[in-house]
Simulated scan of single mutants.
Amino acid sequence: MNDILPESFFHKPTLDLAKALLGCILVKHTDQGVASGYIVETEAYKGPEDRAAHSYNNKRTKRTEVMFGKPGHVYTYQMHTHCLVNVVSSEMEKPEAILIRAVEPVQGIDLMYERRGEMPSKNLTNGPGKLTKALGITMEDYGRPFFEPPLYITKGIIPEHISTGPRIGIENSGEAKDYPWRFWITDNPYVSRRR
């Protein structure tokens, strides 16, 4: 746990942080054990001017409140039956966040199978709802800092190549659907979609 990234790590412009998170390790402690994975895919959401962001037009609700706070905190939200996890970014009162879309399993793989069932290993965590279920991340993690247990991010590997493309599942967001704000480790098998 000595490699937990400090709060200062998260004080970067959102697009830079979205790339810097690639290769870092997302770790969750639960009563069942510890599960972790290399972050291999992220999506940046640049708040007030980004029609795909929950905080578009500075929309402040009970759900988005944490995004108006300090960077490096957990923004979880429910999408259908899935909990999705985001890293709050940018400065106070500028509500931006980065969705963690996929991880490559590192620790607690048996625990991930218990939670997700039998399947090819590359399908365990290759999507934002899959990875939260596999790691045991829930809505209860909302608002926690990412720099102390039970949910934190540590140093990992530095990717050789990073690919960039449009974000996924935001068709009704006008020109924002084409912004190249999705980042992934090139050719990693755990990325949710390679295009």
Rank of each mutant, 00 (worst) to 15 (best):
M1P: 12
N2I: 02
I4Y: 10
I4Q: 03
L5G: 11
E7L: 14
T14S: 09
L15H: 08
L15I: 13
D16A: 14
D16M: 08
D16F: 02
D16E: 15
L17W: 04
A18V: 10
K19A: 12
A20C: 06
C24S: 14
C24M: 13
I25W: 05
V27Y: 01
V27I: 09
K28T: 10
D31V: 07
Q32T: 13
Q32G: 14
G33Y: 12
V34K: 15
V34A: 05
A35G: 13
A35Y: 05
S36K: 06
G37A: 09
G37C: 10
G37L: 08
E41F: 08
E41S: 04
E43S: 01
D50K: 06
D50H: 08
R51L: 13
A52G: 08
N57P: 04
N58V: 04
K59M: 14
T61I: 01
K62I: 10
T64P: 08
E65R: 15
E65K: 15
V66T: 15
G69L: 14
G69E: 03
K70H: 10
P71Y: 00
G72L: 06
H73K: 07
H73M: 05
Y75C: 11
Y75W: 07
Y75R: 09
T76G: 00
M79H: 03
M79Q: 04
M79R: 07
S89P: 02
S90A: 12
M92T: 13
K94R: 14
K94W: 00
K94T: 14
P95H: 10
P95M: 10
A97C: 11
L99E: 03
I100S: 01
I100K: 02
I100P: 07
R101Q: 01
A102N: 03
E104V: 06
P105Q: 13
P105G: 13
Q107L: 11
I109N: 02
D110E: 15
L111D: 05
Y113W: 09
Y113E: 00
Y113T: 00
R115L: 05
E118T: 10
M119E: 02
M119G: 05
S121Y: 01
N123A: 15
L124K: 08
L124R: 07
N126L: 07
N126M: 04
K130M: 08
K130S: 09
L131D: 06
T132K: 07
K133R: 13
A134R: 09
A134W: 03
A134N: 03
L135P: 09
G136N: 08
G136T: 11
I137N: 05
I137S: 02
E140V: 02
E140M: 02
D141M: 13
G143P: 07
P145V: 06
P145R: 00
F146G: 06
E148W: 10
P149W: 12
P149R: 10
P150F: 15
L151Y: 13
I153F: 14
T154K: 04
K155L: 03
G156P: 02
I162K: 11
T164P: 00
P166Y: 05
I168F: 06
I168E: 00
I170K: 04
E171S: 13
E171I: 04
S173V: 14
G174T: 12
E175Q: 04
A176K: 12
A176V: 07
D178W: 08
Y179R: 06
Y179T: 01
P180C: 02
W181M: 05
W181C: 00
W181H: 03
I185M: 03
D187A: 14
P189R: 12
P189M: 06
R194A: 09
R195Y: 05
R195K: 15
